[in-house]
Structures are given as C-alpha cells and as structure tokens.
Design a protein around this nucleic acid. Structure first.
Length: 102
DNA sequence: AGTGTGACACCGA
DNA sequence: CTCGGTGCCACAC
C-alpha cells in the first residue's frame, strides 16, 4: 500500500541529521504535505511507545519548544537537544536557525 | 452535519 | 514583541 502521511512524517523526521532542528512546517514541507504542520504535531502525539523517532528535533517555526516549561516532555526534549549540541534557553532554541551555519 | 480543539504557520496591525 | 484573523487536516462530542 502507499505510504500514508504518517509514514512520510516518520520518514522525514528519522532523516533529520544529528545536531539539527527543524520546524513543523519544514517537516510538512519535506514530507510533501505543504502547510499541514498541524498534522505533523498530531502524528507525533500518536507515536507508539516503541518509537525511536527524534521528535525532539522538531520545534516551532519561531524556534520555540512546543511544550510548557513545567512539562516533563519539555525537559526531556531540552535534555536530548543539549546532547545534540543544541542550546535551549527560556523554552526556545538558542540561535536556532534550522539549517543554520555558525 | 456542525462545533470545538490541537506537540502549527503565515499575514497584518 | 504581542495580538487577532485565516488556512489546513483529523478527531471527539
């Protein structure tokens, strides 16, 4: 059967290189879905427990994390991002730039 | 079938 | 920077 939108989303996210962060819009665009950023977020929320997908590399277009600071999910994402070499300050990615080049 | 909501994005003021 | 409106898709009631 053909790849569903979810499959495309997973494919794109799994293709995100180490130390790189992308926005929902970027993912939707790379998946060929266009402006369906909402769908990306919904798919991530549906991820199974055995997912090995770098969802933490997916942030908002303005470089902000898609979770409240007091959320364990947020802290988990920040921790994982810092491991990737991405600095997160005040709930947003420092110097974010999605393809940035220092 | 219509309304409200959501891990969103873009535009204008 | 913040606020409001609009577009897109899927789901719950």
């Amino acid at each position: 059967m053909e790849p569903t939108r979810e499959q495309k989303i997973w494919q794109v996210i799994s293709a995100i290189p180490h130390g790189k962060v992308v926005s929902y819009g970027q993912v939707s665009d790379m998946a060929g879905l266009g402006r369906q950023a909402r769908f990306v977020g919904r798919v991530l929320g549906m991820l199974p427990e055995d997912h090995t997908l770098p969802w933490f590399r997916v942030i908002r277009s303005n470089g902000q994390i898609a979770f409240p600071k007091d959320s364990s999910t947020f802290k988990r994402q920040v921790d994982l991002l810092s491991e990737e070499g991405v600095e997160v300050v005040n709930g947003r990615v420092s110097m974010a730039r999605f393809g940035w080049q220092p």
